[in-house]
């Protein structure tokens, strides 16, 4: 039974990673850049909900919606100010700018909200499910996390397959120049991608802070890096890949923590990533890189 409950915990953590990784992978697929600041948008989402709910006593659902709006706007603004001018520049330059944005968000949060760790009150008031005569308890947050991850995944896939904007995203990720010639508004598509990714980050922030109820300006940094690892693990640029990578990484982390060593959990997570990349360098679902001279 304890194995099963660990597996469920792993799935829950993995779902959060998957939602964050979706943001990374979409931005990478379409803008061809690593948005290092993505993890810190999660933290911003967490603070918005915390301040509205605990500070202003606002309805949880409304505050989550407010967080999504704030993060979406933030994502688009970051893209417009920091990343758009660098389009076509050296990819290293873009990466460093993203790191600068990440530093900026962390330090701005430090000034605005203070460095103390806040105790986050779970947004969801769902009773835990007891199965097998009370031997197996699943918390409400876990259920909501897993379900929302699956819903988001399916929603995104449908959005990309069925809508015009989704098709435009696909086209831009395949060949930006050709898409532009075909009349796709590339700038708008990239903005939309950042908007969706950042909105997802807000949801991930709420779920993360509900499952692990602490909040500080550095809350987003480590989950951000791990989710990025998950995106690479699954094959960066691929949406199902981000999902699979996230879930696997979450399960591996919880299992490693429980059965091997709690201090070595990160070593195990990163070790697995290295092994996967060496066996299949473009990740589980990644496309092989074609090379031309």
């Amino acid at each position: 039974m304890s194995f099963l409950s660990n597996l469920i915990n792993g799935l829950s953590l993995g779902s959060i990673y998957a939602i964050i990784a979706l943001g990374y992978t979409m931005v990478y697929g379409i803008a061809k850049m690593l948005n290092f600041a993505h993890g810190d948008v999660i933290m911003v989402g967490g603070y918005v909900v915390f301040n509205l709910m605990t500070g202003q006593g606002m309805n949880p659902l409304l505050s989550v919606i407010a967080a999504i709006i704030v993060c979406t706007v933030l994502g688009v603004v970051i893209e417009k100010i920091a990343y758009k001018p660098l389009r076509g520049a050296n990819s290293l330059a873009v990466l460093i700018t993203a790191i600068g944005v990440s530093y900026f968000l962390q330090n701005a949060a430090l000034l605005l909200f203070g460095s103390d760790v806040k105790a986050f009150v779970s947004v969801f008031n769902v009773k835990p499910f007891r199965l097998a005569g009370g031997a197996l308890t699943i918390t409400g947050v876990t259920v909501i996390t897993v379900i929302s991850c699956i819903v988001i995944m399916i929603g995104l896939m449908l959005f990309i397959k069925k809508t015009k904007s989704g098709q435009a995203m696909l086209a831009v990720s395949e060949d930006r120049a050709a898409a532009e010639l075909m009349g796709v508004n590339v700038n708008q598509t990239i903005s939309l991608t950042f908007a969706i990714g950042s909105g997802l980050a807000a949801i991930a922030g709420v779920l993360l802070c509900s499952a692990y109820p602490t909040l500080s300006p550095y809350t987003g940094a480590m989950p951000g890096i791990k989710a990025f690892t998950a995106a690479v693990f699954g094959g960066i640029g691929s949406i199902p890949g981000a999902f699979i990578g996230g879930i696997l990484l979450g399960v591996i982390e919880i299992m490693g923590k429980t059965y091997i060593s709690s201090q070595l959990a990160d070593v195990i997570v990163f070790g697995v990533l290295i092994v996967v990349l060496l066996v299949k360098p473009t990740g589980i679902l990644g496309q092989p890189i074609r090379e031309k001279v």
Partner: peptide, 9 residues
């Protein structure tokens, strides 16, 4: 640190 990050960007 905030100014440092802005200078960097």
């Amino acid at each position: 640190m905030l100014m440092y990050s802005i200078i960097l960007i």
